[in-house]
Amino acid sequence: MHGYAATGLDEIVKDANLTRGAVYHYFGSKKGLFLAVLESVQNEVAEKVEAESGKSKDVWEQLILGCRAFVTTAVEQKNKRIMLIDGPAVLGWEIWRSMDEQGSMRLLHEQLQFRQQQGYFESVSIDALTHILSGALNESTLWIAQMPDVMESVEAILQHLLSESSKVK
């Protein structure tokens, strides 16, 4: 995987057995093709988060499982460059951020809001908590992508931060 900048459209069309015209017809440009790929990766990550969090009936465990699923799926070789490195660089921070808000952050917000309705995070702004936790998850994912052996530490800290923030009245 060479990344967006190091991969030419000629290489893409050859590997995909397409023509340049087909890429331009369906995606408008190399950047449009990348946008479609990023959307696909984000949908795959969201599906994994939902599937993993759905493995428990306990709301607290659902939150932890969902966060863990996000991090582990995002650092997979096929996802990390597209989601975390090229996404913001190619599309720009604002577009990447908007896509993140519609995907992973939306799921996180829903889970935190549900926990608040059950009496947790009573005096905490769920919007603020969502943004802070999402930022922590994204940064953790970049760190884990570079140093996979820190995953256990990240999970422990994440669990601690969530449990402490749920005590805020």
Rank of each mutant, 00 (worst) to 15 (best):
K31S: 12
G32N: 04
L33E: 02
L33N: 01
L35V: 09
A36Q: 03
A36Y: 04
E39M: 10
E39A: 15
E39R: 10
E39C: 12
N43H: 09
N43T: 13
E44L: 08
V45W: 04
E47F: 12
K48S: 13
V49H: 06
E50W: 07
E50H: 08
A51C: 10
E52A: 15
E52T: 14
E52H: 09
S53E: 07
K55Q: 08
S56D: 12
S56R: 09
D58W: 08
V59D: 13
V59S: 12
V59Y: 15
V59Q: 10
E61S: 05
Q62Y: 00
Q62L: 01
L63E: 01
I64P: 02
I64W: 02
L65K: 15
L65P: 06
L65F: 06
C67E: 02
C67W: 02
C67G: 04
F70W: 06
F70P: 01
T72R: 15
T72A: 15
A74E: 04
E76H: 13
E76K: 14
K78M: 01
K78T: 03
N79I: 09
N79W: 00
M83C: 05
I85W: 10
D86Q: 12
D86R: 12
P88Q: 07
A89K: 03
V90L: 04
G92C: 07
G92P: 02
G92Y: 02
G92A: 03
W93P: 05
I95N: 01
I95R: 00
W96N: 01
R97W: 06
S98P: 08
M99V: 02
M99W: 02
D100W: 10
Q102F: 08
Q102W: 09
G103E: 11
G103F: 10
L107E: 00
H109L: 09
R115A: 05
R115L: 11
Q116H: 05
Q117C: 08
Q117T: 10
G119H: 04
G119Q: 05
Y120E: 07
F121D: 06
F121N: 03
F121V: 05
F121M: 03
S123W: 13
S125T: 02
S125G: 11
D127C: 00
D127S: 03
A128H: 14
T130I: 04
T130C: 01
L133Q: 03
N138W: 10
E139C: 15
L142N: 11
I144F: 12
A145S: 15
A145D: 06
Q146M: 10
Q146L: 15
Q146P: 11
M147R: 12
P148F: 05
D149W: 07
D149H: 13
V150Q: 02
V150G: 00
V154Q: 08
E155M: 12
